Amino acid sequence: MGDPVYVSVLASDPVLAAGATAALREDPDLVLVSGDGPADVAVVLVDQVDPLALDTVRRVRDTGGRSEVVLVASDFTQAQALHAVAAGARGLVRRREASSARLARTVLAAADGDCSMPPDMLALLLEPDPGRPSVRAVRGTSDGVGLDERERAVLHLVAEGRATGEIARELSYSIRTVSGVVHDITRRFRLRNRAHAVAYALRSGLL
């Protein structure tokens, strides 16, 4: 076992907070801290992904400790999922799917700098948005707008919730190369983090 991951749980409902805390305590790699203490990852539990929930995600991300955020909600629409990752959430979990194992995996992925969300939620993000033009036609073009094959391969595995080391092994790249690819994507498209990069690429037709 490596260094422990320090986790805080934030919820307005004390029953939800107690349930999530009990579930996370089952994983030996996680250490629970008080809600206002410094943590590597903050698990934020909400009923709906509304403006108040998104403000909470931003506030937690922008505090001095800059905790990564796993957002647990009753459900996510396409727009809500996109707004959540744009606000800085690294992991999205539906409450009904938040088993001890699923929640712990999502927290550990967030602590490792990776994003994680249910596969069907990724499929939801693939649905076209009629209000936003697609850039599928410019994929891989020489003007730098699209993604090359290496970038798409890395981002596909990021979307699956793979850790950086796993991606490096699968694609036979160094960890430094994988990190550099993701950094280049987020910088080029002015995105906040890996989760935002995945959501943007899916919605825009780059993946």
Rank of each mutant, 00 (worst) to 15 (best):
P28I: 06
D62C: 10
T77A: 06
G140K: 03
A109I: 02
A81M: 05
L54G: 01
S12Y: 08
T141Q: 13
G35W: 12
L108F: 03
A104G: 11
A111F: 11
T141Y: 08
L124M: 13
V145D: 05
R66G: 15
T56D: 13
A73M: 07
A101P: 06
L108K: 06
D129T: 08
D148K: 04
G113M: 13
G19R: 12
S67A: 15
T63P: 07
A17L: 04
V33P: 01
V70T: 04
T141W: 10
T77G: 14
G131S: 07
L122I: 10
V72I: 08
A101T: 12
A73N: 04
L92A: 00
V33H: 07
A42N: 09
G88M: 05
G65M: 10
A89H: 06
G146T: 03
S34Y: 04
D55G: 12
G140I: 00
R132E: 15
P14D: 04
A98F: 05
L125C: 12
A86D: 14
A87D: 04
V57I: 07
V43E: 01
L92Q: 03
D36R: 11
A79W: 10
D27T: 05
S34V: 07
A89E: 04
G144K: 06
R90G: 14
P118A: 15
Q80V: 05
R132G: 13
L103M: 09
L147C: 01
G144D: 02
Q78D: 12
L30D: 00
Q48C: 02
L45Y: 02
D27Y: 08
L32C: 07
Q80D: 14
L54Q: 02
D29T: 07
Q80R: 12
A137Y: 11
L45V: 10
G19F: 07
S74N: 11
A42L: 10
R58E: 15
L103E: 04
G131C: 04
A18Y: 07
E149N: 10
P128H: 08
V85D: 05
L108W: 00
V135L: 13
A22S: 13
R95Q: 12
R136I: 04
L30K: 00
R139S: 12
L126Y: 08
D29C: 12
A18T: 09
V60M: 09
R150M: 15
R102D: 11
